[in-house]
Structure formats: structure tokens, C-alpha cells
Design a protein around this nucleic acid. Sequence first.
DNA 1: CGTGAGATTGACTATATTCAACCCTAGTGG
DNA 2: CCACTAGGGTTGAATATAGTCAATCTCACG
Lengths: 243, 243
Amino acid sequence: MNNALLAPIKCGDCPIRHRAVCARCDDDELTQLESMKTYRTFAAGDVVLWRGEPLEFVASVVSGVASLSKTMEDGRTQMVGLLLPSDFIGRPGRTEIEFDVTATTEITLCCFSRLPFEKLVDRTPHVAQRLMELALDELDAARDWMLLLGRKTAREKIATFIEMLTRRAQLDQSGSVEALDLPLTRDQIANYLGLTLETVSRQFSALKKDGIIDFSDRRHFVVNDLAALHEETGDDADGGILS
Amino acid sequence: MNNALLAPIKCGDCPIRHRAVCARCDDDELTQLESMKTYRTFAAGDVVLWRGEPLEFVASVVSGVASLSKTMEDGRTQMVGLLLPSDFIGRPGRTEIEFDVTATTEITLCCFSRLPFEKLVDRTPHVAQRLMELALDELDAARDWMLLLGRKTAREKIATFIEMLTRRAQLDQSGSVEALDLPLTRDQIANYLGLTLETVSRQFSALKKDGIIDFSDRRHFVVNDLAALHEETGDDADGGILS
DNA sequence: CGTGAGATTGACTATATTCAACCCTAGTGG
DNA sequence: CCACTAGGGTTGAATATAGTCAATCTCACG
């Protein structure tokens, strides 16, 4: 594995302190975690974990984006999840995973050796509860994605994807946002949305021609009309969560 | 809700005793659950829970099949899960669900009022652990389904679906199996696989013409050649689990 | 300045959808 | 007892959407 080890920052100063698996920990529990953790960074494109490989560590994403993907024998691949800061890799009681984990941008992980971490989970309900919440959130996201993959048109898929990135950016840095970063290549977006990269490119061009979005650059876009964008997603009038 | 209440059977005699949320419970915990539970039955087609409706109870499926589905404004629908005996409905800490739950066959549920059940979960780690396992199993299943929805052809989808039903039947009644039951209509299968009902029908006919399966009846089929069927699924040579 | 990975665009094609007609079978009522 | 009906299923023909193949473009980087 071509990754680098870093000196971890203190949990108290950690940007994902309030959202990660440690969100509900008290000071004592945090001290235990602090003594177990190591940081690792991976470059964009590096594989973090291979499907079926024995899991040596579990981890939280501190910064960057990683993807979970499944590949068929003939090379067709489908992303089955995106890991953003505060998301967790690995599960108690599982010694391997059913998909590959790849860094799509440079990422930093806060890693814990699997066995000591599992022991900690057994005696700290705060961690077990938070792990459960994270798993259920992933399940909800997976089900939304199943609707997208099974029933949405290419245009709706792209609009949904852009809206998701926009919503997430609003959460992170609440306030006015200029150009947003596209953390995936066209090919990766295609694998996420169950499309080909050509179709992704064509739909981006179409949304741009219709004045809904603009690209300052291949990797940066702005949404000109959020309401019009939402119209294209095929979702409910207010999307469940009024923005 | 047009459902009937039944006298529950004893947990000790329950067919899903060893697989449901109560799988790891000791006698004492079982007694507590026993005192809380009620049985309800629903006819095929009945809606068990509507999306967004406040959750009054959580439940285990005792017998029959239920589906989880999401519907778009214009009527396109996608099943996002199938609930088979021992599967669980509802989650601790959630007061509503993001999808409709419908009985696809007649079903019997073992129901618990939500609040008392949640209190029980807090004090019985056996139940919390099992709930976690069930959630993670669902997450794995959801991810397999994402690959199917995003990347498989119609023929591969149908073959995968039939193989899944066959595998499950082998687990249930281990031994030689004759005609298997198709618990869904063509329309429901289409909604499960992200296809139209016409395409489902055509692919069934094609697999039959190729001698891989046979229909004794619209709702009952036999697999003539399990290996040939697996070839059509697009999955690995041994499907991970050698059958 | 040259190179190559990523992206765009066009032309053509394939797969699954749509629309439509027709078939089966179980259940109902005359 | 049988004809009728309705819901579910099958099949065909035409169509649309996204995929494939291929040429070209852009831009960051050596």
C-alpha cells in the first residue's frame, strides 16, 4: 500500500469531531481513541482496501473523498457509495468487505486497528450507537440511490448528483458559495450514476446550454438556478428537506 | 389499516426464532419480548406502512413477503428491498420511514410498540447487536442491488433474481426442491429490477426457450440448469458462495 | 513545446420502452 | 353449467434513450 503516515492532530481540534464515529464520546472515551489512532494519507487514485482482503484497520475519513465500488468480471463497475469526511470504513464483526475502497481525491484517514477498536465498541455504547446511526444513514442513502439507478433518466441522474454536491457544500460552509468542486472525473461520475462517461458529458453540456449550470473549468461549476435544477431531478416539489 | 390481529404463538415455537431480531436473546429477554408482542396479518396488496407516516410499531416478518418501495411524482416506482421471514421493519431512533411497506403475499408480522421496544433495546445489548447485524446485512444486499440496477442487462437482472429465489429456497427447505413459488407479479418484479413488465415477461420467455428454466404455471418455475443460470447472471464464477 | 489523460462531440447502433393487440385462467353470476 | 369478466401475462411493431465507436479538443505537466 503506497500510503503515508502522519502525526495525528488532537481529537479536540478535529474537523469531524462532532460527526464521526466519536461524535458522542466523552473526554475519557476520546482519550482511549486518541491513544489508538494513526493517520494515513492516500493520493488520488490509490486503492485503500481491496474487496475480500482481510481488514487490518477501520477508519474515519478526515478529509477528501473515497469511493466504494463493485466490479464485474468483464470490467463493468458501479460505485455503491461515496465516503465524505466523517464517514466510516469497516464494520464491527466483519473481517472483510464486499467492495473496493478507492481514494478519488487525496484523502486523510484516522485509522484504528480492527481488534482493539472492536473491543472498545463492546464496552462503549456511545460508539456502538453512533456506528448504528452511521450504518442506517448509509442504508437510507443506498436506497435513494437505488431509485436513481433503477428509474431515473440520464438527465435526472446528473441533476440529482449536482444537487447533492450543492446541498453538501451548503452544509459544510454555510454561507454564499461560489464555484463548487467536482471531486470525481467524468468516468467516476458515470460509474456512480450507472451511465457511460459520454452520456455524463452530454448531459453536463445540455444543462449548461439550458443555463442551469455553468462550468468555470472542467472540475468547477456554479448552479445558476437551484429551483430549475431541482425541477430536473424528478424528485418531490420540496425534496423532503426544504433548502 | 385493514389488518387482522391474531393470537401470537410462543417464541420458543417460532419459526424465525433463530434468525430474527430476537436470535441472541436468552430466556429472560425472550419473556420480556413475549409480553410485548402482538401478531398482525395483512392480505396480499395491503399497505403495511406509508412513507412519512409516524411509526407506531416495529415488527419482524414471521411469514410471507413484504416489499419496500419508493415512488416518484409521475408514478415510476422502484422497490428498494424485499422483506422475507425474519427481516425487521423499523429502526431505533427513527419515528418514520422513507419508503412504503406493502404486503406482496399474505403476511404475518410479530409487532412491538415502538417506544417500549426502544427502551428494551437500550438495556439489552443482545437485541441491539442483532439489530446492527440485520442493518449491515441489508446494507450489503442494497449494494449488490445497486450493481444490478446500474450495470446489469435485462437478462442478467432476471437471471440474478431467479438465482436469488432459488438460493433462498434451498436455505429454507434444505433438500431437493421441485417447483418454486414466484412471490411477485410481473409488474412487481419489474419494479424490483428496474425494468418494465413487458421486458420481464420477454426475458422469462427467452430463458425458457433456452431451456434454462421452465414454468409449470405463471407463478411456479423450475430451474433446469443451475450452472447455466448462473452463467447468465454476470456474477463471478462461483458467486462468492459456492452452492 | 510535446505529450497524454481527461473531456467533448458526432454518427451510428443496440437495448429496453412504449403502445397496442391478444391470450389465459380463476372467479362470478346468470 | 357455462359464458363473461377482469386481472395478469404474453407477444409484436415501432420508438426512444443511452451505449458504442471514433475523431477531435483542452490543458496541465514534464
